[in-house]
Write a protein that binds this DNA or RNA. Structure first.
Length: 175
DNA sequence: TCAGTGATTAGG
DNA sequence: CTAATCACTGAG
């Protein structure tokens, strides 16, 4: 895979613990008008992995909301939370293995709610396919950033085992 | 530190 | 139908 090329099916069909960190430094492209697109480098992600992961929405089973997580890698999982914010996730892994990477930060917009506000993401992106969509996709780069890890944010409801997993991936913004 | 805000879910 | 919950943010 080369810089500027769209990340394909094979990229997303792997385990989310590979996909989530590798998304860091990649370019998220979003259509903003008829022939207008904006490009943002992804700077922070989190991995949610399978029905065992108590922090993963799919740990409570297959529902209308989590259905797309059970689909093949490359789909988009969007959901609404706290009455105000859309969360943008990229589904990873094989069919029937519910995994997704939450996009927590892009260049200029740190925080999952701020990301979707900047990109104007809403429910209409639910189940969109990143490998074929004409309005959103991810491109490869030559960037190989120094990736830091830490525990995931906002999942206090999960047990300690899962709460402490270092499944948040990010790069510090250059100052 | 804490309220706002409404989709989603489980339960009666 | 009701009520609880929530992968957050901005104001104070």
């Amino acid at each position: 895979m080369a810089a500027g090329k769209r990340l394909n099916y094979n990229f997303f069909m792997r385990d989310v613990l590979k996909v989530a960190p590798e998304l860091i430094g990649k370019i998220l492209v979003i259509r903003t008008g008829k022939n207008a697109f904006r490009r943002y480098m992804i700077t922070e992600t989190e991995a949610y992995r399978g029905s065992e992961d108590e922090a993963c929405h799919a740990s409570k089973g297959r529902t209308a909301r989590t259905e797309v997580m059970y689909h093949e890698g490359g789909k988009i999982y969007v959901y609404f939370v706290y009455g105000m914010y859309w969360m943008l996730n990229f589904v990873a892994g094989e069919k029937n293995d519910p995994q997704a990477a939450l996009i927590r930060g892009i260049e200029g917009f740190i925080g999952p709610g701020r990301v979707t506000k900047a990109l104007k993401i809403d429910k209409s992106y639910y189940d969109e396919d990143l490998t074929t969509s004409k309005r959103i996709w991810v491109e490869d780069t030559e960037i190989r950033p120094d990736i830091k890890t830490g525990p995931r944010i906002g999942i206090n409801y999960a047990g300690d085992i899962w709460k402490n997993k270092p499944w948040r991936f990010f790069i510090i913004k250059n100052s």
